[in-house]
């Protein structure tokens, strides 16, 4: 009996000590950063873009180890359903029902092993879409899967 007990205890102790030996390599727990404060960054909170024209989406992205991917999602905010992540609030138009709202979803790859990257992408706003309040969402991940969201209120003018 005693032998069995000792055996079991030994198995358990070996098991536990085996895990303790694992080298505690530091894991990344830092979120990537979206910076839209730079002078060239666009759009910013409350920016206006025009129907039928192109604009350049520009932002500074960075991470402590390695960036993943960035996605942009432009959708209408005619029902005032969202508020932005920014402190400053923008003047909003009255609530209205969408007829043909602009919808834009795109993800952009970032060169592998970048710690810092300036995204520059041309976005075309069609001429036949509803003008009004829109929401410009930037989602940035790093390689480990941490994600930062930035939501900007923008206006599409006719």
């Amino acid at each position: 009996m005693k032998k069995q007990l000792t055996g079991l205890c030994l198995i358990l102790m070996v098991g536990i000590s085996a895990c303790k030996k694992d080298n505690q390599e530091a894991i990344d727990t830092e979120y990537p950063v979206i910076n839209v404060t730079g002078t060239t960054a666009f759009p910013k909170q409350c920016s206006t873009v025009k129907r039928g024209e192109k604009f350049l989406f520009q932002a500074q992205l960075s991470d402590n180890s390695q960036l993943g991917s960035v996605s942009v999602d432009i959708h209408h905010n005619f029902d005032h359903h969202t508020h932005s992540t920014e402190v400053e609030s923008c003047a909003m138009d009255a609530i209205k029902t969408p007829v043909k709202p602009f919808l834009f979803i795109q993800s952009y790859s970032i060169p592998a092993e970048s710690k810092s990257y300036e995204v520059k992408q041309e976005i075309t706003v069609p001429s036949d879409i509803d003008a009004g309040d829109y929401h410009f969402m930037i989602r940035l991940t790093d390689k480990e899967g941490w994600q930062t969201i930035k939501g900007l209120s923008i206006k599409i003018a006719s």
């Binding site: 993943g68 795109q106 993800s107 899967g145 941490w146």
Partner: peptide, 13 residues
């Protein structure tokens, strides 16, 4: 597993 990717179609970005 949360990946580094974003989905274009089903996941609305």
């Amino acid at each position: 597993n949360p990946t580094a990717q974003h989905d274009y179609y089903y996941g609305a970005g």
